[in-house]
Computed example of a mutant assay.
Amino acid sequence: MQAPVITVSDVGIRFKRNRRSRRSFKDLFAGSQRRARPGEFWALRNVSFSVAPGEAIGVVGRNGQGKSTLLKLVAEVVYPDEGRIGVHAGVAPLIEITGGFVDDLTVRDNVYLTAGLHGMKRAEIDAQFDEIIAFAEIGDFLDTPYKHLSSGMKVRIAFSVISRLEEPILLVDEVLAVGDKGFREKCYRRIEELLAGGRTLFFVSHNERDLRRFCTRGLYLDKGALVLDASIDEVLDRYNQEYGVTP
């Protein structure tokens, strides 16, 4: 049996409802018995699971139940307040379409910047640059500032760059819903290629058809807790039974 690429052990993370309130220096080094103080809430609590190489995981739940937060924890964009996360392979995150891109830089410069930040060498980017642009279908906008792109175009270039990374774990949030139908299908075929090549997938979506298409296993989050870890069909069937709606 292969060692897990992701281990999540009793993880919890809390946030403040009031943006103006800040955690004190003392709070940051509080003891192990942590409780949500007034104005705080636990976005996730007591969450544990592991992921084997090559698994395709669909994260299911209503809005506000901690799905995107879980992906950000795996991507180390945020860190838990309790418990431990071990990510034992590189991550290619497609979580927020603006992540890593600079508004005032051109599309061309952003490709080099973002790919470089994710560990690609200049020679590697040079070799794949034409393919990245061709996939994104924005060759006429190479020297246009990123901030002038539409939301759909930003998704195109972000996915095209991230999907070229050689990292074993691919994190995909709901950002692909912004793209047009034709390009979304193109992205999905690319995801299938990556899965066939042995990549591990973490996929957050409210589209039941997409979840069943890509994923073999599901994590069902409700009120910040992991209530079911099972096959994607079992997870979706239970979700639909409880709420009568698609994820």
Rank of each mutant, 00 (worst) to 15 (best):
residue 157 I to H: 00
residue 230 A to Q: 10
residue 165 L to P: 01
residue 147 K to G: 13
residue 177 A to Y: 01
residue 193 E to I: 10
residue 187 C to K: 13
residue 179 G to Y: 11
residue 64 G to A: 05
residue 212 R to S: 14
residue 77 V to R: 03
residue 73 L to K: 05
residue 131 E to C: 05
residue 198 G to Y: 03
residue 224 G to P: 00
residue 96 E to I: 02
residue 56 A to D: 05
residue 7 T to W: 05
residue 225 A to V: 01
residue 77 V to D: 10
residue 120 M to V: 00
residue 71 L to T: 06
residue 90 G to I: 00
residue 178 V to I: 13
residue 79 Y to L: 03
residue 218 G to P: 07
residue 239 Y to T: 14
residue 1 M to L: 14
residue 37 R to N: 10
residue 56 A to V: 05
residue 75 A to F: 04
residue 133 I to T: 02
residue 167 E to I: 04
residue 188 Y to G: 15
residue 81 D to Y: 02
residue 177 A to Q: 11
residue 54 G to K: 12
residue 122 R to Q: 02
residue 106 T to S: 14
residue 120 M to T: 00
residue 48 S to L: 04
residue 78 V to T: 15
residue 47 V to E: 15
residue 219 L to H: 06
residue 226 L to V: 09
residue 24 S to Y: 06
residue 222 D to E: 14
residue 211 L to H: 02
residue 66 G to N: 09
residue 133 I to L: 04
residue 3 A to L: 13
residue 157 I to Y: 00
residue 183 F to Q: 07
residue 236 L to Q: 08
residue 19 R to L: 06
residue 136 A to F: 01
residue 128 Q to W: 08
residue 200 T to I: 03
residue 140 D to E: 11
residue 104 D to H: 08
residue 230 A to C: 11
residue 202 F to T: 13
residue 6 I to R: 05
residue 223 K to Y: 04
residue 120 M to R: 00
residue 79 Y to G: 03
residue 54 G to L: 07
residue 85 I to P: 07
residue 154 K to F: 01
residue 177 A to V: 07
residue 105 L to R: 10
residue 200 T to H: 01
residue 210 D to I: 08
residue 156 R to D: 11
residue 224 G to V: 09
residue 171 L to W: 00
residue 8 V to W: 10
residue 127 A to V: 01
residue 73 L to G: 09
residue 87 V to Y: 07
residue 74 V to D: 05
residue 143 D to M: 08
residue 104 D to L: 10
residue 40 E to A: 04
residue 229 D to G: 07
residue 155 V to I: 13
residue 172 V to W: 06
residue 74 V to E: 08
residue 2 Q to F: 10
residue 229 D to L: 07
residue 65 Q to I: 01
residue 94 L to P: 07
residue 124 E to I: 04
residue 208 E to R: 09
residue 191 I to L: 08
residue 189 R to Q: 11
residue 131 E to D: 14
residue 26 K to V: 11
residue 109 D to T: 09
residue 94 L to I: 07
residue 41 F to A: 03
residue 207 N to T: 11
residue 233 D to H: 14
residue 114 T to D: 10
residue 52 A to N: 13
residue 172 V to S: 02
residue 37 R to S: 09
residue 85 I to F: 05
residue 11 V to C: 06
residue 126 D to H: 10
residue 111 V to W: 02
residue 119 G to P: 03
residue 106 T to A: 05
residue 20 R to Y: 14
residue 46 N to D: 15
residue 44 L to T: 01
residue 11 V to P: 08
residue 179 G to A: 15
residue 27 D to K: 15
residue 72 K to G: 11
residue 146 Y to M: 10
residue 171 L to Y: 01
residue 93 P to D: 09
residue 24 S to A: 05
residue 166 E to A: 14
residue 11 V to Q: 09
residue 121 K to H: 13
residue 170 L to P: 12
residue 107 V to R: 00
residue 158 A to N: 12
residue 51 V to M: 03
residue 209 R to T: 15
residue 233 D to L: 12
residue 101 F to N: 01
residue 30 A to Q: 14
